[in-house]
């Protein structure tokens, strides 16, 4: 794997207990690789006062405890934390050289009631529903970040042919597992919430389970593939999960 230049970044405070490192200003795989590298480095090298780190599209935000970082008020906490992070940014290197990203297959039933907006997405893009499914299952989607709700993946890689605007009136209740399209993004709802995405199918998998370790099925950096299943398979998979 190509050595990533980690020296190009901006650092800015997010309030008095967090600092954000920004590696780029657009969503692309190169910036994502830097975010991932630094995020993984921080997980392996926690330091006194480190609370947690949150990777996003172009940034990694580090939460810290100013009381601990300042050694109970002896030093300026922000100066201390930025020195620490600048040092870490110098030494952070990709540790899994050549390792392949984790590919996760997500079975999706696109039939009938599971994909109430499939017809609309097809009509909007002058395709047949079958062509929408074929295109959606052909793609490989990069998990750029997890946010919005527990286990909710922001996926990159949706074919331009499937882009569809959000619904004018959001649904008050979207069932967990719903797979949708909003603009040029596709995603999966891990828990029941209101939302405005165009729903094209549903997965029997539980994207989020607080009893599981880790609780989120997907992690930033994973690759997702959708696999079409029948309604019968959907219910079988659902039952298997209940038993285990």
């Amino acid at each position: 794997m190509k050595q990533k230049d980690m020296r190009l970044f901006q650092l800015y405070p997010l309030g008095d207990t967090a600092v954000t490192v920004q590696f780029g200003d657009c969503i692309d795989e190169d910036t994502h690789a830097k975010v991932r590298t630094f995020s993984a480095y921080l997980e392996r090298h926690p330091f006194p006062g480190f609370v947690e780190q949150v990777p996003a599209f172009t940034t990694v935000t580090i939460y810290y405890d100013p009381w601990v970082v300042s050694e109970k008020g002896l030093y300026n906490p922000y100066t201390r934390i930025t020195e620490q992070l600048q040092h870490m940014l110098k030494v952070a290197k990709e540790s899994h050289k050549g390792s392949k990203p984790h590919v996760v297959e997500i079975p999706v039933c696109y039939d009938g009631a599971f994909g109430p907006d499939l017809e609309y997405v097809a009509r909007h893009n002058k395709l047949t529903p079958q062509e929408v499914i074929a295109s959606h299952t052909r793609g490989k989607y990069l998990v750029y970040m997890i946010g919005f709700a527990p286990g909710f993946p922001y996926l990159g890689g949706l074919s331009k042919k499937l882009a569809t605007p959000r619904k004018q009136n959001p649904r008050p209740r979207i069932p967990a597992g719903s797979v949708g399209i909003a603009g040029n993004q596709t995603g999966i709802y891990p828990i029941e919430t209101p939302g405005g995405w165009q729903l094209i199918g549903r997965t029997p998998l539980q994207l989020f389970d607080p009893e599981r370790n880790p609780p989120s099925l997907l992690q930033a950096g994973d690759l997702v593939r959708f696999v079409a299943i029948s309604e019968k398979e959907y219910w079988q998979r659902k039952e298997q999960q209940h038993e285990s």
Partner: peptide
């Protein structure tokens, strides 16, 4: 804007 972390008090 591109989504990024927010916190208590933002």
């Amino acid at each position: 804007l591109i989504s990024s972390a927010v916190t208590f008090g933002t």
